[in-house]
Design a protein around this nucleic acid. Structure first.
Lengths: 194, 194
DNA sequence: GTTTTTGTTGATTGACGAGTCAATAAACTT
DNA sequence: AAGTTTATTGACTCGTCAATCAACAAAAAC
């Protein structure tokens, strides 16, 4: 029965299942068995491939971060000019894939994880750094010196919009989120233009 | 040895200890024993007064919310005119008491709790509603129709600034947080003034 | 064709933790 | 003084869960 080359497949399934389960349960109190079951294998196999629950969580974070990074890079590739680039970053941040309840719920819990697990903290900082530099690249041509604080504010605003999404009942409202962020951006940029 | 009328004292000690422990550990994975120990009693007594761990968490949330509400009300009482009121709300949100690592860490974890426990969700919504209406009261005279979206954005920004505080190493930077929020406010209001 | 590597799981271990209980004691009531 | 209420805890129950292990199966290597 055992086919070879299962490792990457199993790992991918586990990562996906981890995110789903965390999103579903709404906390990190997910058992390895739950995750493994959803991924269609025994909990022993999950341990076999990842060694520990924590490693599974970290792999899931890396995965989300990778997806997000790819999405941003893709959107950025099509954009021309600073304004369009900023818009691209926002669009990616609130894309259907990233802004769905499941992912947002997982995101929140990774934030909690970052309080305890240094590697998780590091990963979140990577995300923050990337977001910051993406925003700065677009902002500097438009706002010069004032780019820095604007980027900081916008970054916090994005995270805050994610946070609020968690509490909302009903379907995610990407429109609103993007509009709020763009709005912020515009009122900031108006001040710097003729 | 047993003095009477201990209930409120014990409960208060437990609530305080709950917040401290959640902030210290950085997650909701605190044992009742830890909390009780910090509050100077046996875990059995903690159960005696609160019945369950969840009730303790909720009491802790209510406590934080009460403190925050009192702080806002106090600041608001001294303020005159819409602008001053807005400033007061921001100052209270980032006051030394509310913006210390411990409280912020607990806050984040309550957000997680809200995903599972309806009463926690309700409490958080109360907070959001209060913040919203406080902001609106100050904003409407200054921005009219545009008050609504500005308040939504500002609310999310405040939550986002809290969130980012969690990841930061080093001491909390209230100055920066207030400045960022005020900055947001100003660029929003400029558009609405002559 | 035997050995090694890779995949897989059921069963088990060992720890830990929420909640309960019985027992003890001091204070208040009558 | 007898009875009741309030305070308090150590010991115990019961469940859960991460992690390990022994064993089995199939492919690959030799």
């Amino acid at each position: 029965m055992p086919k070879l080359g299962m490792e990457p497949i199993r790992k991918a399934a586990l990562v996906k299942a981890t995110i789903v389960e965390i999103g579903r349960v709404g906390s990190l109190d997910v058992t390895v068995s739950q995750i493994a079951k959803r991924a269609g294998m025994s909990s022993a196999l999950a341990h076999h491939y990842f060694g520990s629950k924590e490693e599974m969580f970290l792999a899931a974070m890396r995965h989300i971060l990778t997806l997000y990074g790819a999405e941003v890079r893709g959107a950025l590739a099509l954009a021309e000019g600073p304004e369009s680039r900023l818009r691209a970053v926002l669009a990616a941040s609130f894309s259907a894939a990233n802004f769905r309840r499941e992912a947002v719920g997982a995101w929140l819990n990774f934030w909690v994880l970052a309080q305890t697990v240094p590697e998780a903290k590091r990963l979140l900082k990577v995300y923050q750094g990337r977001l910051r530099s993406n925003l700065l690249a677009g902002l500097r041509p438009l706002a010069g010196d004032r780019a820095e604080p604007i980027a900081a504010g916008l970054g916090a605003l994005i995270d805050g919009l994610y946070l609020r999404e968690v509490l909302k009942s009903g379907p995610p409202d990407r429109e609103m989120a993007v509009a709020t962020a763009l709005n912020y951006l515009n009122s900031k940029l108006e001040g710097a233009r003729p």
